[in-house]
Amino acid sequence: MLQSRFKMPSRDELKKRMDKIPDNLMKECPICHTTFFSMRMGKQRTCPNCGFGFRITARRRAKITFDTFDEMDADVTVPDQYDDKKYRGKIAKAKKVTGIKESVLTGIGSLDHQKVVAGIMDPFFIMGSLGSATGEKIVRLFEKATTEKLPVVMFTASGGARMQEGIKSLMQMAKVSQAVEAHSKAGLFYLVVLCDPTTGGVTASFAMQGDIILAESHALVGFAGRRVIEQTIMKQPPKNFQRAETVLDHGFIDAIVPRTNLKQTISQLLRLHQREASHG
């Protein structure tokens, strides 16, 4: 009988074997709670069961999204005026982990022979928070796109404002909005991809200002933090109230696209927004 040929190891035995596997070899999906071998995430870093896109660095995203990527403003970083020791320590660590000098990587990308100006926020750089240099890089990106008449693709991933930079962080919301609107008024296309997590001041500005807004499967998308809301309403908010699927249901996202289809979808949308050269 089959059963005898594939004898199931005991529970204890299984646990013992699992414990021998190094932690980073196994991964648990925070959405569907499936456990799987890390290598099955592939270079896209998605859950093989539900398609959830794990948080990835901006550099990795540039690599898996664009055929070529020429970085812009690579040296724009947190101004020296912020000299708090703890903050400087965080910055140093973030630079090391992400290989970039602020929470957004910007550049000119190409995909399927289409040229775009791209911004990729890095959730590992102080939670992708919006520092004044982050705002500066994003504004320069939009200014470049407006001057060169190019579309913008922006991947958002952010915990919101950069507390350490106080009111200057808040001002970035206005500064970037201005640049987005100038780009929009020039008749140019702005595509947003909401990635896990997109919250706070980023949600309340350029993340929600796209002509088309996509989101990765199951990405957390919201404005106020869950804990703040919990304290306000004095009960637990519904489990998935800030998931991309819920936000889609409420009409604030155009489509949800699993990461594995994202490159193809972006390419398609860029194509659909191309101004026909032969008619020009």
């Binding site: 309340a204 929600m208 200002q209 919201g222 409420h250």
Partner: peptide, 24 residues
């Protein structure tokens, strides 16, 4: 802004974003 579940469902982030984009 009012931090509750309905405000999220009704797009508080989007509403503020529009005020900024258009207002300026």
């Amino acid at each position: 802004a009012w931090p509750d579940v309905d405000a999220e469902y009704h797009g508080i982030g989007s509403a503020i974003a529009k005020c900024l984009q258009v207002g300026m």
